[in-house]
Write a protein that binds this DNA or RNA. Sequence first.
DNA 1: ACTGAAAGGTAAAAGGG
DNA 2: CCCTTTTACCTTTCAGT
Lengths: 149, 149
Amino acid sequence: MIDNLDKNILNALTENARLSYAEIAKANRVSPATVHVRVEKMRKAGIITGAKLSIDPRKLGFDICCFIGIILRQAGDYPSALEKLKALPEVTEAYYTTGQYSVLIKVLVRNIDDLQKLLIERLQVIDEIQSTETLISLQTPIQRTIQAT
Amino acid sequence: MIDNLDKNILNALTENARLSYAEIAKANRVSPATVHVRVEKMRKAGIITGAKLSIDPRKLGFDICCFIGIILRQAGDYPSALEKLKALPEVTEAYYTTGQYSVLIKVLVRNIDDLQKLLIERLQVIDEIQSTETLISLQTPIQRTIQAT
DNA sequence: ACTGAAAGGTAAAAGGG
DNA sequence: CCCTTTTACCTTTCAGT
């Protein structure tokens, strides 16, 4: 399926997506054309889905990161609740989960006031939501990508 | 601090980090060199922290994504617990949080067996950890970056 | 399937308004 | 502060092995 060269290319690019194919090629003693072919192959296979710039949300004024565990009234409420969550730009991630909560979302907001408004005026008014539990993230000490092995 | 051009560049690149400066320049009716200067400025300011390849973990055999809420025995246990969590490659994210849990981690594993082994043999044996609660993510319907506004 | 060379395009640096 | 120009490098393609 994927060999060592593929893995090395993936691991190099997941660290730094703007690394040139030429440099990766040199490190792996192959030609830049080969790196190009491999990347295209993995893109077509759906292994590589894109490349995103990493930005520091705090530098853009989003000082608060938190997770909100959402408990829905009924399991069947999930699709319509999701549509309403998608409409909130502060919600950057959502996970449909088993366990404690039905949905776990990650939100970025500018300050505590914005968080409070989001919770009271835009989340808790959603009919499908029974209750929410907020976990404010004080620090993000680990942030990395899975290594291809 | 940052103007509209900066914001447009950020939003374009957060969507697709391999977009060429020439294309961004054309869309904003400025020269490619200007885009380059702005990007460098934002990199030096710490707004842009890097670029990462997005990959599909399932295509690499990591079929299970879950969040684990960790309750520590004592608040002071955090630094040493964190070091032990960093040593586990399956832990891709960690958040130090207020509320329900002390630490929330995101883990990627290949299958249920690996999850069970991780929980029992490598997490619950950590002295600083009092208890854990696992939320298995069945689906990730929202995954996006904050928009600069 | 990889390589090497060729063509086109892009990034980065320098100079001018 | 932004533009144009320039140079060097990079990506991408294709014929050949």
